[in-house]
Design a protein around this nucleic acid. Structure first.
Lengths: 203, 203
DNA sequence: ATATTAAGCGGAGAGCTCTCCGGATGTCAA
DNA sequence: TTGACATCCGGAGAGCTCTCCGCTTAATAT
């Protein structure tokens, strides 16, 4: 009876484990809203969820992973929005479509910035090569690469769409975005325009 | 007699303090070389220098600051190289000069990466807006802005040289650079070419 | 030489991240 | 139902960052 399920995920999650996961999520959500993500420690979350620290760390190696789980649904919805947008604007030129994607992206990170930044100061998060832990990155990169390729298709098949996409993505990473907004003082619209004139020539 | 000195820096550094600073620098240098920057804790440095943790933190709020002090001279020398290069190539077009600067920059961060990255996982370092704590940033930015301005001078006085310079600088930040090198697998030369074709059009 | 005082020292300790492992407990097969 | 066992729990504890504060000491004024 459980053969098929076991095939899908090698072992069922135990009931107590599932319950604890829920408690963690609820506790974290509550504390994050109350005090802000940065101000809440894994210890506090464990205490609020009434579990031991070991139990918490078993599931989430650091605060970042926990945050990611907390916004998983939002991320899925975000990519659904992107997909729908791309579908409805197939006939538009690729540069226009890329700009449209940025227009969807920016409000999203404005809203989810805290959770996306997550636990930046975590020791184990340091090891990861870059920001690839961010689930947005790979998917967004893929989309951007395709659009850059399409933009360059007519001319030369410039092999650096991958590079360009990386550059665009770090340009709109949380840190960079808020640096432009808060330190340089640009409005989101100005940032968008600057992005386009820097990375997408004729828009 | 000490009036003039006091005028320069409001109070002389006490002799014991100066000695401790030296001990710290020596201890840190030794440990960093022995085990790598990441693997060495502030505690260890204090112990090796035979001072209390409080004494260490009085001078360096985190490992990053200590690292910065350790490469201060290298940074000065780096900018002297830049200045000299710019002087010797005044007649070259600005895009060529910018590429030349990148050629000087890249080996520098290859050599000093560990110390430049410093104590990334430090709590107080998190607060800082971005990577402005990096002493390279502001000066490099200023230089890049001037060159971008010069590049755009003939055409329109495009007001986004500041933005472009920011984008170029995060593109060559330690994290981004090593991501391209280690994950994407580009050689330094390839990175340089991609950078030019992305940020400096006709080079 | 001595007193004054700002600067510096150092260690105790709070609170954190993360690990480890003995014991408990759900799950599945028989 | 029961036994076996993989999974999970929880908390002790190592080691870290960083602060606080009473004490010490170097520099200066007298």
């Amino acid at each position: 009876m459980s053969e098929e399920i076991k095939a899908i995920q090698s072992r069922m999650e135990r009931r107590d484990a599932a319950e604890n996961r829920q408690r963690i999520l609820v506790a974290a959500h509550k504390l994050f809203e109350q005090h802000g993500v940065d101000q809440v420690s894994m210890n506090q979350i464990a205490a609020e969820a009434q579990i031991g620290p070991g139990t918490l760390y078993r599931r989430y190696a650091n605060k970042g992973e926990l945050c990611l789980d907390l916004i998983k649904d939002s991320v899925v919805r975000f990519f659904e929005d992107i997909e729908q947008y791309l579908l409805q604007n197939q006939q538009e030129p690729p540069d226009h479509r890329l700009k449209g994607i940025l227009k969807i992206y920016m409000p999203f990170i404005e809203k989810k910035a805290q959770l996306l930044t997550g636990g930046k100061g975590s020791a184990s998060a340091q090891r990861l090569p870059y920001q690839s832990q961010n689930p947005l990155y790979n998917k967004m990169h893929q989309i951007a690469v395709e659009l850059f390729d399409e933009m360059a298709a007519a001319d030369h098949p410039s092999p650096n769409s991958i590079f360009k996409a990386d550059m665009l993505l770090i340009a709109i990473s949380i840190d960079s975005y808020f640096y432009q907004r808060d330190v340089r003082g640009y409005s989101p619209d100005e940032i968008l325009e600057h992005l386009c004139s820097t990375f997408i020539k004729g828009v």
